[in-house]
Design a protein around this nucleic acid. Structure first.
Lengths: 345, 345
DNA sequence: TTGTATGCGTTATCAC
DNA sequence: GTGATAACGCATACAA
């Protein structure tokens, strides 16, 4: 298509090229009269400035990238949604990039940043382990980590983060089950090796709660989830089946995520067990689906929307020269009846 | 950060700027020796070409935009995921843009295209009604419509599309309920005015099936879904409650989407009804969640992955000068037991 | 096979 | 208040 450019606008409105630029960017002073004249031409010809040229000149774009590990995770969707809307409302288009398990999201961030002259980046769902100070320095643009626990030895001023304390919240959830009289508590998660991920941290919380209550850790009660395709329901389903077979006397299950919990619930129900009469289940994340499941499932609710908003506002803060921040949100256990009190009276 | 550019690389490797460019883009002939020399420097300094400059020069970027209405729709997620992965593997970063109900996605596409020099665009979940030939021409880049029925008077060579026949599939679903002996069949959808959307088309299919079987249309059996916040479960939940109140003798419900169906199922179960003994339910889309719901729900399954792959391949075809295509996929009814046969023997 | 020079559409620094 | 003009980093026609 015959793209119209700033030069054309200048010629058509009989002014200089710089004046048009001033009108567009509202920088510098322009008389009302010429301003109107230029605007008219711009509107008439439907002129839209070319971002590539603009960014090239500014040696920085207005692009923000959202890098997310497992985009199809329902828990992330809500956050992605919020971030997209919030960014769009501030005039920043979102470049969303999904990364698979085997990729290093920070490397991708660096590459993407140089590639597209990003002005900011949000990383979601990654694993902190491989993050090094050198990489953050190389990245060189504001970066906020969302839902990735940053227990490393990297200078925390190099990035912002918004998380929950996975270990603590998992501890709380497990403690809740114990307080309800359960001692034979299964744990469902997905092992991803030696990385520091929420999975691992929640597993540690589970273990600490058991330890503290004098309940010995039984490896048979822990399923590290045989990988399966799909959104993860099936992972939970299969893992739960195994777990039930190995532990007929198991009375409760704590699932690393709601998706796993739903798969597990289905497995329990399919094998004739009732929830919570025969088996108690609690998930983690607080996705809406748990409320509408039958029965509704207990879950450790993360304030996803607030967290996403914080991430956006932190990123903009940093882009405006503010210092990095680190926020830890609290989760709350949503009790909906999928956990039974089997306490002896 | 001290960004390194092509000039630096040229200087550092003792060659000309054009040679470096040739090495990078594998265009033109370069001797193996200098090629290696240049590559070494590139790797050593971790040089990444600046896309803005590149795109500016080429007067076209390698950016592809995915514009989606209601990004958080679980049915779309899978498609988005597939598209993102597929595009990334071909080296095209995805610019994902969510648009709300009130925006015209084609206008946004045009604006985004000029803004960022897109080379292709996929529109998902929109409503065709407002699309005009002039807008497609103004867009001027390859465009494929995914899940948006294009029954308009626009020259079909201006765009590609991949859809299912919403009217026909809804007809099939309703017919299925009728064949199972149901005559008192509710329909759950979300009215969005006069636009041609899947909602409307599916409603028409529902009506045609009733008509054909001599069952009078009862407005009381149709809920156009009071708007509610959230992913849509709640919309289905509330609509179903209303519907049950107004129609105590309703034996089956056809929901416009699986999300609505799940909300409806929850409402039915919460009011003490059993599925399918007391009420039959069938949804639409085929999201994985329906399988893991309790009970598993029947649904009209759309081949989401194949559709997404087709869209991607069509877009690339068009980008390579191929002609536009229009594909209509078939859905298949997944029967999982949430519809009961109440036929008199 | 290689290097030089030009322009892609902007923004910003100057002069006026 | 306004208008030339020099970069921004790159691809490419053209010369060598």
């Amino acid at each position: 298509m015959a793209n119209i450019n700033i030069k054309d606008i200048a010629r058509l409105s009989g002014v200089g090229i710089a004046t048009v630029s001033r009108v567009i960017n509202q920088t510098g002073a322009v008389s009302e009269k010429t301003k109107k004249k230029v605007m008219d031409v711009i509107n008439e010809y439907n002129y839209i400035p070319n971002n590539n040229a603009r960014n090239l000149k500014l040696t920085q774009s207005e692009n923000i990238a959202l890098i997310v590990k497992y985009m199809s995770n329902p828990f992330f969707i809500k956050m992605i949604d919020v971030i997209e809307i919030e960014m769009a409302s501030r005039g920043f288009p979102l470049l969303i990039q999904n990364v698979d398990e085997s990729s290093d999201e920070l490397d991708i961030a660096i590459s993407e940043s140089m590639h597209s002259n990003l002005c900011g980046i949000i990383i979601m769902g990654g694993s902190y382990s491989s993050y090094t100070e050198a990489k953050f320095k190389q990245l060189g643009i504001p970066c906020v980590l969302l839902t990735v626990n940053s227990e490393g030895n990297v200078d925390p001023s190099l990035y912002s983060s918004v998380i929950i304390d996975d270990e603590k919240e998992a501890y709380k959830a497990t403690k809740y089950l114990i307080d309800m009289g359960h001692t034979n508590i299964g744990f469902l998660y997905k092992d991803v090796g030696n990385l520091v991920t929420p999975n691992i941290l929640r597993y540690q919380g589970y273990k600490r709660a058991l330890l503290e209550s004098g309940i010995p850790l039984d490896e048979n009660l822990v399923s590290n989830g045989t990988p399966a395709s799909g959104a993860g329901f099936r992972v939970g389903f299969l893992a739960m089946k195994q777990l039930m077979q190995k532990n007929p006397s198991m009375t409760a299950v704590f699932a690393f995520s709601d998706v796993l919990a739903i798969g597990a619930a289905k497995a329990a129900l399919a094998s004739g067990k009732r929830i919570p009469e025969d088996i108690s289940i609690i998930g983690f994340d607080g996705i809406e689906m748990t409320e509408f499941y039958n029965p509704s499932l207990d879950t450790v609710y993360q304030p996803a929307i607030e967290m996403a908003l914080s991430a956006v506002s932190m990123l903009h803060g940093m882009m405006n020269g503010e210092k990095s921040q680190h926020m830890v949100y609290d989760s709350v256990i949503m009790k909906r009846g999928s956990v039974k009190n089997i306490q002896k009276p």
